[in-house]
Design a protein around this nucleic acid. Sequence first.
DNA 1: AAATACTCTTGACAAATGTCAAGAGAAATT
DNA 2: AATTTCTCTTGACATTTGTCAAGAGTATTT
Lengths: 193, 193
Amino acid sequence: MFDVFQKYLEEKIKLTEQNLELIQSVSVIKKLRKHQYLLQADDVWQYNSFVCKGFVRTYYVDNKGQERILNFSPENYWICGDKASLASKKPSKYNIDAIDASEILLIRKTDFEMLCKKIPVLNDFINSISQENFIAMQERICVNITFTAEEQYTNFIQKFPAIANRVPKHMIASYLGISAETLSRLRKQATKK
Amino acid sequence: MFDVFQKYLEEKIKLTEQNLELIQSVSVIKKLRKHQYLLQADDVWQYNSFVCKGFVRTYYVDNKGQERILNFSPENYWICGDKASLASKKPSKYNIDAIDASEILLIRKTDFEMLCKKIPVLNDFINSISQENFIAMQERICVNITFTAEEQYTNFIQKFPAIANRVPKHMIASYLGISAETLSRLRKQATKK
DNA sequence: AAATACTCTTGACAAATGTCAAGAGAAATT
DNA sequence: AATTTCTCTTGACATTTGTCAAGAGTATTT
């Protein structure tokens, strides 16, 4: 499964064979059955992680007991994980589990930092991804504070058609912060138009 | 006004005099009258910026013509600006203007990159701030998709009491994505309890 | 000092969204 | 094949939130 990650990297940046070997030497593949956890709330998150195969979600349970999905991570994407837990070594408030059977590449925080120091192009690449994530997150806040539920849903399926087709509707509702019933009714209305 | 920034930096990291001089050499102070723009939508944003004095907000106008506030930046904080515009040189979708008369320290993108390369401690410091911002943004998304309007307001005044006391209520409503009237009613209810 | 603009509140009503309960069909499990 | 679980929808109703209009009190400007 490392080859998936390697292919991803090689499409983005130029790496020597030595660099690749170094990266591989600190990479671990973890297989997840469907519904299996990669991280459970109250554990400490200590990896950078990449989805080689499958599909994963990050969620938490709110004060009313409802699951709220913070992020979907499909194949060929990094998992956001819990940066707060990663930085502070405090227990995570998030759970990560497999929506489909998955294979996840893990690199320990310290190893990852070592890689970034030794491989400047990797460091630059990771920084640019962080920046993209930041922008995407800001976009999401804009959508949240501006759009109605219907507009949010339309925006979601237009922006993430692959995810929209792959996950159950109630998860999309959870991601958007609306109830599954409301989403169902919005969908009904939309077909009428 | 550079001394405010200098003091801020020296509390966080160790810098040589040369470093400080280098930073100062690329820093520009811009004074803003109340309500004056630092950035207008459709212009390109090209700075890293820090509020030495005053108070600034970042907002955009939504498709229904309403102002939506993305961020408040008080004294001694960086202004988020528009990272997308900064990165791509495309016109910004955001406006930044002064809530109070302000003095803003500006460093051009290219100069800022030069500083980060030449001063590793600065680079590390900026990275850690980016990370904190990222975590804060994720928190905000959680709040948005989980909390009711009332919970969001309570959370806001508890988390940012200084801002809450300083800006008009309708701006807080705009930041939270609720109407000014709703906020007013929530406040009334809260006093009854 | 007068005029103007801003801030906050309130009422009345409409629209959007949530909650609870139920059921039908599809998918997964045994 | 039967059972169980999951997914999606629907109805009925309550609650929350938005919109429009108005007004009172504060700041700000002229």
